[in-house]
Amino acid sequence: MPEKKIRVLIAKPGLDGHDRGAKVIARALRDAGMEVIYTGLRQTPEMIASAALQEDVDVIGLSILSGAHNTICPQLMNLLHEKGMSDVTVLVGGIIPEADIPGLKKSGIAEIFLPGTSTQDIVDFIYKRVSRA
């Protein structure tokens, strides 16, 4: 029996439409054997939290390039907490100033992947984190 596949929701919150990164990650995780659901563009934190609950995912990957991370991430983390989904691993990829990283991690974001990260590093991180849990 193969192990149950890790389920990942790749989400693109905010108004930004630059989805190159989100799409590449979605495909790389799928190629690495995960079940990937891509939300499409312009998802509010509420929409992302509901989709995560509905799809029963292990991981949420947020792609944020617009500078809105300090608004979006805490909102999403609160919603996940309220819905009893604090065990979901939340990752952020995109353009995040180094100074903002400690605050995001404090809000519960498991890891932040900056430009230049190889897709393999993200795959490895997820396998390590989710199989340990």
Binding site: T44, S66, G67
Partner: peptide
């Protein structure tokens, strides 16, 4: 969207 639209939150003047 205007700057005070709910969907503008966190995005005003950023990009």
């Amino acid at each position: 969207y205007d700057s005070d639209h709910p969907l503008s939150e966190g995005e005003v003047g950023k990009c």
